[in-house]
Computed example of a mutant assay.
Amino acid sequence: MAGLERLRVYPVKGLDGIDREAAAVLEGGTLARDREFALFDDEGEVLNGNRTDRVHDLRTDFDPETGELEITAPDGEVVRFDLETEADRGRAEGWFGDFFDADLTLERDRELGYVDRREMGPSVISTATLETVADWFDDEGMTVDGARRRLRANVEIGGVEPFWVDRFVGADAPTFEVGGVRFEGVTPCGRCVVPQRDPETGEPIPEFRQRFIEKRRETFPDWVDEEAFDHYYTVMLIARVPESDRGATLRVGDPVDVVD
């Protein structure tokens, strides 16, 4: 039976995610605490893994109840900041600025978060897809959790086949519901440089993109509308929750149903 296997949000854009047992859908259509904070340079550009592999040098944890961010630096130093307070957000700016050697500000958006596609909503993948991608790179030591950390989806669906989410884009695509909350497919997620890198070390897998494209082409489901895909370097669905379903809460274990 298809069900909601995992919920993961990324409180500070570009840094580690945290698992949630439940997450509310905000009025903006994204999940609560997802990319709620982001670092911007003095030209207004966001700092993330697409810009620098140094994000992989940091281990972070976040308490969604208190707003405390814990950072473990490469030398073992552990620092904590209460991101609910302006003073500690200022301290965090200074710490990140020193680490990344840049003039940074830590911004906050409670209503939508700093997701890449601000007119859309949560990202969705199936557990079987993560297992398949990990198998493609088994010789390089990729695990399922490693694939999960590389691909950085919000919503993970269990009990379905690999690339299950591909059916929800294109002409006459169905939608699906998670615990009664409707998800409409918007676009396949084209990938950047981040999935190539080990999430612990930042070391890239040689020729990752080429092998990924070859394997994706070989395993592309015949029931997918190929015209909805610009290329094969895609995995994961960017979805939209209609306004009528925003404000609802998703919970791990919720049933998942396809709606024609």
Rank of each mutant, 00 (worst) to 15 (best):
T52I: 06
G159V: 03
G146A: 08
E77G: 13
E161F: 02
V178G: 03
R59M: 03
V12D: 01
V193P: 07
D42Q: 05
D75M: 14
R251A: 15
E243M: 07
T219I: 01
T219C: 00
I71G: 02
T52E: 04
R240S: 15
F229Q: 03
A173R: 04
M142D: 07
T66E: 09
A134M: 14
I213S: 05
P255T: 11
V124D: 02
L47A: 05
A239F: 03
V155R: 08
T127E: 12
D109E: 06
D230L: 12
E214D: 12
E21G: 14
E107L: 13
V133P: 04
G185E: 04
L104N: 08
A24H: 03
R167A: 13
G97P: 08
D116C: 05
T175A: 15
R217Q: 11
D34W: 00
R51G: 11
Q210H: 06
E218S: 13
L250C: 06
V79F: 01
G158Y: 03
L69M: 11
E5L: 13
G76Y: 11
A32D: 01
E36Y: 00
T143C: 08
R167C: 02
P221S: 05
D63I: 03
D139T: 12
T143P: 05
E203S: 12
R150P: 10
G170H: 06
G44L: 04
Y232A: 15
G180K: 04
V124H: 05
E86H: 07
R59W: 09
W95Y: 15
A92Y: 04
E43Q: 07
F137C: 13
V224E: 02
A128T: 06
G190K: 09
D109T: 04
V55C: 05
Q196E: 15
L237S: 09
A73D: 08
E140H: 15
P199L: 12
A2V: 06
F99Q: 11
N50P: 00
G121V: 02
D63R: 07
R54L: 14
A128K: 10
D245S: 11
R167W: 01
D254M: 09
L69H: 05
L106C: 09
I213F: 04
R197A: 14
L130E: 10
P255Q: 09
A228R: 07
G180L: 03
E5P: 01
P188Q: 12
T105C: 07
E200Y: 06
C189M: 12
T249H: 11
R6P: 01
L112F: 01
A23M: 01
F168C: 03
D88R: 02
F212Y: 12
V259Y: 01
D88Y: 05
I125G: 06
F183E: 02
P242Y: 07
I157H: 02
A228G: 07
S244K: 14
V256W: 03
T129M: 14
G90Q: 11
E43V: 00
M236H: 12
R91T: 02
P242M: 10
D75N: 15
D138M: 05
Y233D: 07
E107Q: 14
G159T: 04
R8I: 11
A248R: 15
D53F: 12
H56G: 02
A23G: 00
R33K: 04
R35V: 00
V155E: 05
G159P: 01
L104T: 03
E93R: 13
E107G: 09
P122Y: 01
P195K: 12
V12G: 02
F208Y: 15
E27T: 00
D61E: 14
L26F: 00
D172E: 15
T187F: 10
I205G: 04
F100N: 10
